[in-house]
Design a binder for these strands. Structure first.
Lengths: 143, 143
DNA sequence: CGATACCCCGGTTGTCTGGTGGGAAACAGA
DNA sequence: TCTGTTTCCCACCAGACAACCGGGGTATCG
């Protein structure tokens, strides 16, 4: 019911990068993958998609890695998912064979619109906030 | 991006049945399938799911068919989709490997909750209303 | 009885998901 | 300039799932 694996992986990697964005340093896929428990060669593909989508910049060679091109509060999850999953490839035909299907498709469109609005109003910075709140709450619990 | 085919098919069939519910008559899969342009043997499976879910009653033999067990305004799309797609089979374990994934999963859960609320507040009667509004609008357009 | 229409279950075909593998290209440091 | 590091690119693969099709079995009306 959740996100597909590539989406979760991509967001988790972006959260790591968002955490160090202010310092200007870069992170390498191998490090992100090991810290998040993600298959390294697979995460590589997500990073490539995110770079092609303009969310990441990459540096090659020793001491290379990735960094965000924009501050975390300027990156919405809608943009992230667009990079990772692409557009749902709307088929150009199918003129809705019956009034019933027209209504059903309209409903599906409405649901998609609501979801998109939610994803557009959530940024990487928001996710970091939530993570830190969780960590603090857990720290409280252990005292 | 829309509903899976079986969901759209099932809803369209239910809309047909909702239209004749007041009269108490039954409709046969063959008729529904041909009116909606749906493969007949495939629609049969959806009807079976809806009957097992308690939304439909079936009559066998000549002059048999299906009818709603409840009035259209008492059937929500959440119930329909539950019958047709089943529960997303939540895996019992996976203690969320990192704080990042906890936040991501929480977000996915929130999106699912919002969607479910929307589906719970939409009934078959609502869809029939929308269909008839569309038909009237189109009739206007042709005059 | 016999035609009708639902009932059950398994197989098929094609696409998508998640992941692996083999190198080639860029780059820092010695 | 050489060497190791890290990204880049493309191909491939196994399993799952979606959308259907088909072969019968079973209740029921006339």
């Amino acid at each position: 019911m959740g996100f597909p694996a590539k989406t979760s992986y991509g967001i988790a990697a972006l959260m790591e990068l968002a955490g160090v964005h202010a310092s200007g340093e870069v992170l390498q896929v191998a490090e992100i993958a090991s810290r998040q428990g993600i298959p390294e060669r697979y995460l590589e593909q997500m990073m490539t998609s995110l770079r092609r989508g303009g969310l990441l910049r990459s540096l090659r060679g020793p001491r290379g890695g990735y960094q965000l091109t924009r501050p975390p509060e300027a990156v919405t999850l809608a943009q992230v998912i667009h990079c990772l999953e692409g557009d749902p490839a709307v088929s150009p035909d199918e003129p809705a064979r019956s009034p019933e299907f027209q209504v059903i498709d309209a409903l599906a469109g409405e649901l998609a619109r609501i979801r998109l609005a939610q994803l557009e109003s959530t940024t990487l910075a928001n996710l970091l906030e939530q993570r830190d709140q969780r960590l603090q709450a857990q720290a409280m619990y252990f005292i």
